[in-house]
């Protein structure tokens, strides 16, 4: 099962490597990991997407909680939540293909944010599955470069992860 673990962690040098090191040392999967400071400069918010049996996920959350720098965490995939990922994708766009690519981008609510005579950069956000689908839709020989941010997420409603 895929899980999205949101972590509030002290914004200290080395904190990221403690989390990343924990996953590699204990052989846990990481699908993606994102991290950035929050409105409180002393805290970073990290989102780890991982997978494993219930037992493994339980161990992952317990082991993360044991890290001294981890202030709080929550497995947001256990509750109603929203997840988003940002993708920037550079495609070859020549003559006849240009129209078609714009149409596809529209369908996926993508924005074209850079244009040259032979290429576009398209920005798409959404759940991982939507981004996967968009990549699938494009002709493979059109793709020059794909950059994805990894998943971040937040709980629905008033409940949240804060100190």
């Amino acid at each position: 099962m895929r899980h999205i673990i949101s972590i509030l962690i002290e914004n200290e040098s080395g904190a990221l490597s403690r989390v990343a090191g924990l996953f590699s040392a204990r052989g846990y999967n990481i699908e993606s990991l994102t991290v950035a400071p929050t409105e409180d400069a002393s805290l970073s918010r990290m989102t780890v997407v991982t997978s494993g049996s219930d037992e493994i996920i339980e161990q992952i959350t317990k082991q993360l909680n044991k890290l001294i720098d981890v202030v709080k965490l929550i497995d947001i995939s256990e509750s109603s939540h929203i997840e988003r990922e940002l993708m920037l994708i550079k495609v070859r766009a020549l003559d006849g293909a240009r129209e078609e690519i714009v149409r596809l981008a529209d369908i996926f609510r993508g924005k074209i944010i850079d244009v040259t005579p032979s290429s576009y950069v398209i920005e798409v956000t959404g759940e991982k599955s939507k981004l996967d689908a968009f990549v699938q839709t494009l002709p493979t020989d059109a793709i020059i470069e794909v950059v994805r941010s990894g998943t971040t997420g937040i709980l629905r409603g008033e409940r949240g992860l804060h100190v």
Binding site: S13, G14, S17, R18, G21, I68
Partner: peptide, 13 residues
């Protein structure tokens, strides 16, 4: 600090 990270309860620089 990096070398001992996996074998300490915590470390500081």
């Amino acid at each position: 600090v990096g070398i001992t990270r996996p074998c300490v309860k915590h470390n500081f620089l």
